[in-house]
Amino acid sequence: MSSDALTSSEYIKHHLQNLTWGKLDGSWSFAHNAAEAKAMGFMAIHVDTMFWSTVLGLAFLYVFRKVAKNAHSGTPGGLQNFVEMIVEFVDTSVRGSFTAKNDLVAPMALTVFVWIFLMNMMDLIPVDWIPGITEAMGIEHMRIVPSADPNATFGMALSVFFLMLFYSIKNKGIGGFTGELTLQPFESKNVLLQAFFIPVNFLLEFVSLIAKPVSLSLRLFGNMYAGEMIFILIALMFSGGFAIGLFGGVLQLGWAIFHILIVTLQAFIFMTLTIVYMDMAHSEH
């Protein structure tokens, strides 16, 4: 618990507040509360999300780059073995779902998988540890799970989405791409009927197209946000006396162990769907 002065709802709100740096009343500053952060609108940046995701991403790149630089075909050492295991796992997934030839997909799948896994893993650090330290350093808000910030998940999903659009148009041409959007699932030999079907098809296909990045990001965000929320609720129990606190500790352990599964599964799902979407962009229906 950060302090006794906070009520439960204040504690939860405090934990769900990003460290937001944005333009408020003409000048750039950190938001002190949720209302200020909201008032900043789009011209604001979540410093904590950016910081932790970048740190974790760089950690991933550093470790993998170190192995890649010294990669040899002899008997691999411990770290190389570990990295190779992940790479081969991703490679197998890509080979299984992605049929076309594109050198971007496999590295992207690897990045997605490891990066999301690391970001999700931040959820397992007790909710008050790092925010407690930063608060002592004078930083008011700190959310350490980047994937529980919709900005991060939408950022990735949108990047994947734009790559998907890019490769769709590149491989099928603008005609092929719009054809995919408008000429199915309903089609008819009758020209008049076909003309009637086009807007219907477009409505259906456009929704399913837009649903892809939205579902991709919201699935990850929802899981991580819910997980974080439960950790915060469990953390609330620590202030309820010894017995409840002990019970909370058991709950926290149980939820953390279960959460390892969710963390890995969500990273895997995001990776697999990325591969599948990229495959759809490369193949004709």
Binding site: T20, G22, M40, G41, A44, I45, H46, N151, F154, L158
Partner: peptide, 10 residues
């Protein structure tokens, strides 16, 4: 809130 972080993350 959805904000510049989205672009930064992308």
């Amino acid at each position: 809130n959805i904000n510049l972080t989205l672009i930064g993350q992308s």
